[in-house]
Design a protein around this nucleic acid. Structure first.
Length: 476
DNA sequence: ATGTGC
């Protein structure tokens, strides 16, 4: 990114002042090194986002941002319905409610060492992964609608998990206001066989060891200790979310044209929050959130079954489950006034600080766990939300490393087999459906997640709690 | 991200 175009506010905060059609400034969080390496396109896209009607405060860019479809990935933007604010399918992203869930195991690394390969094999066998992967579950129309309304709650009622899991999921695993009738039949058909599947790309299920604790006090509240084994799931709403995105993007292009909303780029298509289309998208997108909650809940059940085989009686409670592709209605302070805003987080994790009613009671004194998935073979991190983040970025933080290299370039650079072998030498077992997928997801095709979380920490968006090191990674 | 792409 061209640093000359930015005004430095602090070591970890930079600004693009209002210019052209921008209604608010762009605020970018990150070190000089991170922002220098960011694509210039991110600045353009974030400025475009700042030009849409009803945006308040600023168009925010997280340290892990990269070029996305219309809105940058790693972007946060809030729109006010009372100021003709908009909602945008591209501002949520195609993988609606993609997110991370982490399970505690109570095991230590030495417990899994003797069975590591067998554990990897069985996890790989039991968790369907890959493009177009199907599970054993088939939902008819009636069950589909119930799932889209009930989310993880529906999954638990149908035998996939424990009632107490719900208290550790954002929205308690069931997003209110979901409207299955706003979801196309095509989207539902695509999803019918995809419940409890991982998908492809950077999605994974990973067995990890807590490699480092940054904050002992908060780690204790999160039940994390050095050497503990945890399991993390990174996936979203599969074909359903993607089809909702595709369907509504088309409609929003037409809507924006009709209402003469000035779009710097077609891909910024949006609809007024108060419009019929805006409300319908919100209902469909919320159904997508429930689909992702249910999906991660079913995968949790599959993982627990595998662990129970090796460790009879094991309990695997949730640490937390949080999304990083959503639009949510939240109250935030703008110019000293509490406003109800539509907060788009695309590749940005909600990161509530202490004393928020929305987070589990056990965590309320310290703040919400902010789960940051790394790329294949690299560290992941657990952070905690801060009080400052509300003012800084509507309580949001980073979501992961972010690509540094295109998929096609990664394919030219590496072979899947070589990547798997070199990770094996480091003691990391990869079980993947596609060798091509492994090459595309090569560790060096991603930015360094450690830099990104350090920047989030130093910018006060969220605070470092623990580092997770991969042992077994199941991929599409 | 995606029944991967014009």
């Amino acid at each position: 990114m061209e640093m000359a175009l930015l005004e430095k506010i602090s070591d970890y905060c930079w600004q693009i002042p209002i210019q052209g059609k921008m209604r608010v400034p762009v605020i970018i969080y990150g070190s000089e090194k991170i922002i220098q390496a960011m694509d210039q396109k991110v600045a353009e896209q974030a400025s475009n986002v700042a030009s849409l009607p009803g945006i308040v405060k600023a168009s925010f860019v997280m340290p892990d941002a990269h070029w996305g479809y219309g809105f940058p990935i790693g972007g946060v933007a809030a729109y006010d319905p009372e100021e003709e604010g908009v909602i945008s399918a591209g501002g949520v992203g195609f993988d609606i409610s993609c997110g991370v869930r982490t399970l505690l195991t109570g095991l230590q690394e030495k417990d899994i060492q003797p069975i590591k390969n067998k554990l990897a094999d069985l996890l790989f066998k039991e968790i369907p992964a890959g493009v177009g992967s199907h599970g054993k579950i088939y939902l008819d129309k009636e069950q589909m609608n119930k799932m889209l309304v009930g989310g993880a709650k529906w999954a638990i009622e149908n035998g996939y998990g424990l009632q107490k899991d719900l208290s550790r999921i954002e929205e308690e695993g069931c997003m209110p206001g979901a409207d299955p009738h706003a979801v196309s039949n095509l989207a539902k058909e695509r999803q019918a066989k995809e419940m409890g599947t991982l998908g492809s790309g950077n999605h994974y299920a990973e067995v990890q060891v807590v490699g480092k604790i940054f904050d002992e006090t908060i780690a204790k509240v999160f039940s994390l200790q050095q050497g503990d084994i945890v399991v993390s799931i990174h996936c979203g709403s599969r074909g359903l979310g993607h089809q909702i995105g595709t369907d509504y993007l088309k409609e929003m292009v037409v809507c924006a044209q009709k209402l003469k909303i000035d779009l710097p780029e077609r891909e910024l298509a949006c609809a007024p929050i108060t419009s019929e289309l805006g409300k319908r998208y919100l209902g469909a997108m919320r159904a997508g959130i429930n689909c992702a909650f249910a999906n991660r809940q079913i995968i949790t059940h599959l993982i627990r079954k595998v662990f129970l085989f090796f460790f009879p009686g094991i309990e695997m409670p949730l640490l937390y489950d949080v999304s990083h592709n959503t639009c949510k209605v939240e109250k935030h302070k703008v110019n000293g006034q509490l406003k109800e805003l539509y907060v788009h987080r695309k590749g940005a994790t909600r990161a509530y600080g202490p004393n928020q009613q929305e987070i589990p009671e056990d965590y309320r004194t310290v703040g919400q766990p902010v789960l940051i998935g790394g790329s294949m073979g690299t560290h992941s991190y657990i952070l905690v939300g801060t009080a400052q983040s509300e003012r800084l970025a509507f309580s949001s933080a980073v979501h992961g490393a972010g690509r540094a290299m295109s998929r096609s370039k990664a394919l030219k650079e590496w072979k899947g087999k070589e990547i798997i072998r070199s990770l094996e030498e480091k003691g990391i077992i990869i079980r993947a459906v596609s060798e091509r997928g492994v090459a595309e997801e090569a560790p060096l095709a991603y930015k360094d997640v450690s830099d990104v979380v350090e920047a989030a920490h130093k910018a006060d968006l969220a605070k470092l709690v623990a580092r997770l090191d991969p042992l077994i990674c199941i991929k599409g």
